[in-house]
Amino acid sequence: MRRGSKLAPLLLLLGIGATDAEPAPPLPEIDLIRVRKAARLMELWSGDWLVHRIEHIQLGDEPTGPKRFEGDERTPEGRYEIDWGNPASAYHLSLHISYPGPQDRAYAQARGRSPGGMIMIHGQPNSLPQGRVPGDWTDGCIAVSNDEIEFLWESVGDGTAIEILP
């Protein structure tokens, strides 16, 4: 986990306040993030258990189809991992997705292009005082609300698999 305990996100998830008598059990380890692009849905899995859902995710300006090249504004599709986090991002926290993988690089290279990179799960722009940018607006990243990226920051460790589906 990045910072803090697993307990705080679970309390938030369950709506339990600090005044409750019994502490909730810790959040199970998240070992898979599954993104369903068409449904604008992110699922957090622990083993065979779906433990949390984030709805209304935002994608690249061209959300249909896999990312192929730098600048195509598409969100990748495939299996990657979260490999590092950036607390000083231009967005409210960010988690790096290990795109491009070897197949992504080979596809782009065979066509004389760059596959791009720096694909993240992130919050909203730091310059936005509150709320969310409407619609799909990233250059290929996955955007969530600031509260949601804080939850992910606390709950998802480096090495967590991420599967991005059409």
Rank of each mutant, 00 (worst) to 15 (best):
M1E: 09
G4Q: 14
G4W: 14
S5D: 12
K6N: 10
K6S: 13
P9M: 02
P9C: 02
P9L: 07
L12G: 05
L14N: 12
L14H: 08
G15A: 09
I16G: 02
I16K: 07
G17M: 01
A18D: 15
T19E: 13
D20T: 06
P25D: 13
P25I: 14
L27A: 08
E29R: 11
E29G: 06
V35P: 00
R36C: 06
K37P: 00
K37C: 02
A38V: 03
A39C: 12
A39H: 08
M42I: 14
M42S: 02
M42P: 00
E43A: 05
S46K: 08
G47T: 11
W49V: 11
L50G: 09
L50E: 14
V51S: 03
R53V: 08
H56I: 03
I57W: 04
Q58C: 12
T64K: 15
P66V: 08
R68A: 00
R68K: 15
E70V: 02
G71N: 15
T75S: 05
T75Q: 00
T75E: 02
E77P: 08
E77I: 11
G78Y: 01
G78K: 08
R79S: 07
D83M: 12
W84C: 12
G85S: 13
N86C: 09
A88F: 13
S89V: 08
S89Y: 05
A90F: 07
A90N: 15
Y91D: 03
Y91E: 07
L93V: 04
L93K: 05
S94G: 13
L95E: 00
Y99E: 03
Y99C: 09
P100A: 09
P102V: 09
Q103S: 15
Q103D: 12
Q103I: 04
D104I: 06
D104P: 00
D104V: 05
R105M: 13
R105E: 11
Q109C: 09
A110F: 05
R111W: 14
R111L: 14
G112E: 07
R113C: 00
S114A: 12
P115T: 04
M118K: 12
M118F: 10
I119E: 06
I119D: 03
I121Y: 04
I121C: 02
I121P: 00
G123L: 04
Q124K: 08
P125D: 09
N126D: 08
S127Q: 08
L128R: 13
P129C: 11
P129V: 09
R132C: 15
G135S: 15
G135E: 13
T138S: 10
D139T: 10
G140N: 05
G140F: 02
C141D: 02
I142M: 10
I142S: 03
N146M: 04
D147S: 15
D147K: 10
D147P: 05
I149W: 00
E150P: 01
L152E: 03
L152N: 01
L152R: 06
E154S: 06
S155G: 06
V156E: 01
T160A: 06
T160G: 01
T160V: 15
I162V: 12
I162E: 01
E163L: 09
E163C: 07
I164R: 00
I164A: 02
